[in-house]
Design a protein around this nucleic acid. Structure first.
Lengths: 304, 304
DNA sequence: ATAATAGTGTCTTTCAGACAGTATAGT
DNA sequence: ACTATACTGTCTGAAAGACACTATTAT
């Protein structure tokens, strides 16, 4: 088509004279929320190791928020798709590849970064514990895993008779051997038109850079939602695992205990029994069978 | 904190010398997918008017894709949040305010726009039919409502024995009195790590600009998902409505018929009966009661 | 035997699907 | 009476929740 615009230009001519720098543009970054599951070393005779949810953070080496901990990420190169940018950064930081990844949300509040208008396209990634200690890229000196704990501190109705106007205070606690980071996020639900609108606000930030507390909190909620409705949890598991280990992962993410019998019934179609049995540190109780993820669970009929 | 970075600058000094233009930045737009429900005029004696899903499109007046139809949207001003940008554009185009709105997804493929790297933060908005014909802002000359129909043309397994590798072909048909636009989208689901990854590709585009076919298709899927799990549907309804009207809205969006008794049971807690009765064009059958949305359905106990 | 975990059977409740049946308006 | 829509009652089966019970290991 050689159709011309108001200035009398064809598409080809238009594209040749197009100068993006005539508009004031925001900067665009990708940030990654990388989750994995940690096994706490417990030497108690007989007891199973406790599991914990972990998040990868890097220490900022420059302004703004120098010295604070941030989600790994960086500016999007103009020649690179988001997924490529995320994968590249993740490879550099943790040496992990070929993992589950999904776009979380795009944060773009005008004042979220002191430098200039910076928009952050956040991704969530899940990696399994087997590949946990593989950090060691060039950028990785200050990349560390932090155990993550999220707790609802307070929940209240703003207008007593209207239950669609609530505020919830969530406290995030991130720890490693040396550091303890906390962040208080206030989540407000209010009626927008006829549907509920959720907004997050940082109340207190002790060690976390930018608005990354919001991103982490939002990521946990997404993870919670998806673990109940999809097979996303298996991205956190190693090739072989016991059903109890799997249950612990669900329990940590959901933040509540599950009844074993019901849990097993629910996930039964997603797993495949193997001949193997968990050996290593097992002591003093019935050994458990090892299972693997059943890729085709969506389309197999139940056996009755 | 007056901590200094490697160049020996304090945060204040750093921010003063910060020049965003030293990095090559993509441009950022917001695009809006605005849904509403249309009542087709049917003059058949007795028959109820058919309902249809509609989408708002604007005709492009400049390159690239001049003359094609696109989602309303525009470049994000540096001083403006996404929601503000979306609300402003929507007000300009349709004169509608205070509606339900949520972020859909951010599209950022390198080659999605011919001009330069353009990232689009897409929002979905729902407006009720009552405010349907309120267009007439300055930008609105070429803004029009199109009825939207989405149909699965083909569904196949790529690898027969692996059911997690499927391709689905969806045909979008958008019509108004003068135009008929079609778009073919191929949705590929493949196993990425241990979870399913979904990607969309435009196969054929007849009248739609850019990759907006993908955005529309993705929006319908989100709408379908949310209408079953939330009260989002009421954003498409006027203040007062009959349960049959509500059911039709569900049916159009879900693309299948529902059983009346079950539907009413399911939504019963979300609605409130009024004393009023639908009058206007009713002929030849039992008149129906009018209902309104019950804002507090989430927290009320069922009455038994 | 005991402690600790692994694993199963079954009763109950809740909810979605199917379908038959009744109700009420205008012509 | 007929037609088209409005609205309800109830049977069914699937899935989720609760809980009691059995199994197996090292010390």
């Amino acid at each position: 088509m050689d159709r011309k615009n108001k200035q009398g230009l064809t598409e080809k001519e238009f594209l040749e004279q197009y100068d993006p720098s005539q508009f004031d543009r925001p900067s665009v970054t990708v940030d990654m929320l990388v989750f994995s599951i940690d096994e706490e070393e417990v030497k108690n005779y007989r007891k199973l190791p406790k599991k914990q949810l972990r998040v990868l953070l890097v220490k900022r080496k420059d302004h703004p928020d120098i010295g604070q901990w941030a989600l790994p990420g960086g500016f999007v190169r103009t020649s690179e798709n988001f997924e490529e940018a995320v994968a590249r950064e993740l490879k550099e930081e943790t040496n992990v590849e070929n993992i589950y990844m999904e776009q979380l949300y795009t944060w773009g509040e005008v004042k979220r970064d002191l430098r200039t208008r910076i928009i952050s396209v956040a991704y969530m990634a899940l990696i399994n514990s087997a590949s946990q200690n593989l950090m060691g890229g060039s950028d990785a000196e200050d990349a560390k895993w932090f155990t993550l704990d999220s707790q609802v501190i307070k929940e209240k109705k703003v207008v007593p008779e209207n239950c669609n106007n609530t505020k919830k205070l969530v406290k995030l606690t991130l720890k490693d051997e040396e550091n303890e980071i906390t962040s208080l996020i206030e989540i407000t639900r209010s009626l927008q038109g006829k549907s509920i609108k959720e907004t997050r606000q940082i109340i207190k930030n002790d060690g976390l850079a930018f608005d990354h507390g919001k991103i982490i909190e939002y990521g946990i909620e997404r993870l919670r939602d998806k673990i109940e409705r999809t097979d996303i949890a298996f991205s956190l598991m190693p090739e072989l695992f016991t059903l109890t280990e799997l249950q612990k992962v669900y329990e940590i993410i959901l933040g509540r205990e599950l009844l074993t019998a019901n849990f097993r019934r629910k996930i039964s179609r997603m797993v495949e029994e193997t001949d193997e049995i968990k050996k290593d540190g097992d002591v003093g109780h019935r050994p458990s069978k090892l299972y693997r993820f059943n890729q085709n669970w969506m389309v197999e009929e139940p056996n009755y």
